[in-house]
Nucleic acid binder design. Sequence first.
DNA 1: GTAGGGTTAG
Length: 642
Amino acid sequence: MAADPSTSTTAAPAFASDANSTESWSARVRSLTRLGRHREALALLRDGDPYPPPHALALPAAVISCTALSLPSGVAQIQALGYKRGLLPSSDAYLLSALLSSHSRLGHLRRAHQLLDEMPLASTPPTTLRTAFNSLISGCAMHALPAACFAIFRRMRAAGAPFDAVTLMTLVPAAPHTAVPQLHALAGKTGLAAETTVANCLISVYARRGAGLARQVFDEMPVASRDLVSWNAVISAHAQNGLAVDTLDLYGRMRGHDGVGVEPDAVTLVGVLSSCAHLGARSVGRGVERYMQERLPGFRANLQLCNSLINFHARCGSLPQAQQLFNEMPRRSIVSWTALIAGYGMHGHGDVAVNLFQTMVSEGIRPDNVAMVGLLSACSHAGLYDEGRKYFSAMESAYNLRPTLEHYTCMVDLLGRAGRLEEARELISSMPMPADGAVWGALLGACKIHKNVEMGEEAFEHVIKLEPTNAGYYVLMANIYTDTGQLDGVVRIRAMMRERGLKKEPGCSYIEHKGRVHLFMADDHSHPQAKRIYELVIKLEQMVKEKTDGTAGTEGGRAVEGHSQKASGPLIGFHSEKLAVAFGMLNTDDSEIVVIKNLRVCGDCHTFLKTVSAIANRAFLVRDASRFHRFEGGACSCKDYW
DNA sequence: GTAGGGTTAG
């Protein structure tokens, strides 16, 4: 074995004055292995003085180094040496475990089993048995052989070998989800569930199927036994399952009293930033960014963390910051590109998104399904009909990607909003898989824009079969009837909703001011400044009415939120975004007012905000459920296409 | 000295 010249030179001085006993020689091998300098470790073992022969302490390290370098013949040599010196089949637990793990990692599971079979079960100490079985189980887990893991575990118990936290930590992630509660119960019975590592493992595995059980395990842990990994696991569990508010709540607790002695790391922040991005929680996210700059100086080298930050900025209205971060990254992944592409898409800059995508491809990055969703939705938001169609068909022909339901949803949205409703419906019938609620919902949304009752009814029929409890679709259909003057239809839909006990999701908007979040619901009077806010909205309504008199039309949407039975009343709607914007106007001078909203902006509010941006000479950036609208000088960045 | 837990984009 030749030493790697680039690293062996650095190794020499450290050991130059070392004694020549076999122990210190072995210690040198072990330490090189631990440092990941595997070639040097093996070179030392091989080229060192063969007499006296290497101490037993060097052998497990040598096995690890051979494994890391994928050298099965080296492993075999060491194993032979182990037999020759009587360390095997069972007297040196460390060598045994290292060999079992090595054979399993290298995919030689039969050899691993043989080694286990040779062990004299009766005369081997239980702790040695335990590590031996654990090693083999973990090897099988690494090769995604869950059945083998459990077969060995049964054998382990039959042999009377005790299992421990490591056993459970290896089995739990390998187990089919239905078996996890049984392992959990076993952990409880044996007291192993109290081990932090076992609990952490249960949290992360439960998290794959919702946050509920993960949270329960976390909550049941004694506060003092929660370590950084516990917090990261529970925070990620909520972030991954879309529970952004709970994620931030947990983060707050971690930073406060409950997390004493635990400092967030990059993993924590990845989950937190993702939730900030979803919520539009700008001040929390900026706090995270400051924390990174102050406490994690090397964060730019952390791809995942940078990607999360790009996504955060892009989705929270700071495209320039997202772009700058992207430019400064030493290394980028497809995730970095996708976050930026989707960000430009959300802001209506479809052309930029398409250019970025082209650059990405020209740099040799092959698009994946997620990148295509970002690109197609960017085309959709910008009305780039031809590009959207081109890239959709390129998925299969150029990139060997099979379109998923999400891609079809984007395309139905793109075609439908472009007014090509028939084409959109044809696309649905050509799909190789059954359409889901989102696909039909996209068609329904397009029918709302183009006031097409017949096709809307067809889409509605499908969508409520697939998602009978999603109130948003009923509201959409009702709005189509409202817009086309079919009030009997509106009544019918309302009756359906009542019968089914469905309530439309309340609209809410929020704005951050001086580090605090000000949340507004439709027709909400709870804000301390409510009186002034309403006075301003009413005054602006009046001004807007005068300015747009006769030209505003009845741009639908008044049934979207709030008390829409007043739809026939005066043209005053206290939708949440109007309240939030008014609050911003009252409390700031000339900066851009940023509002985050949970539902789509309705046509009335859209007209209102455009006009007010001109009257008051202010810029408003509103993120609604699907994209950004930037209102300035009487126009919106969506060019009224949304 | 051996076996080993948490991570992003739509």
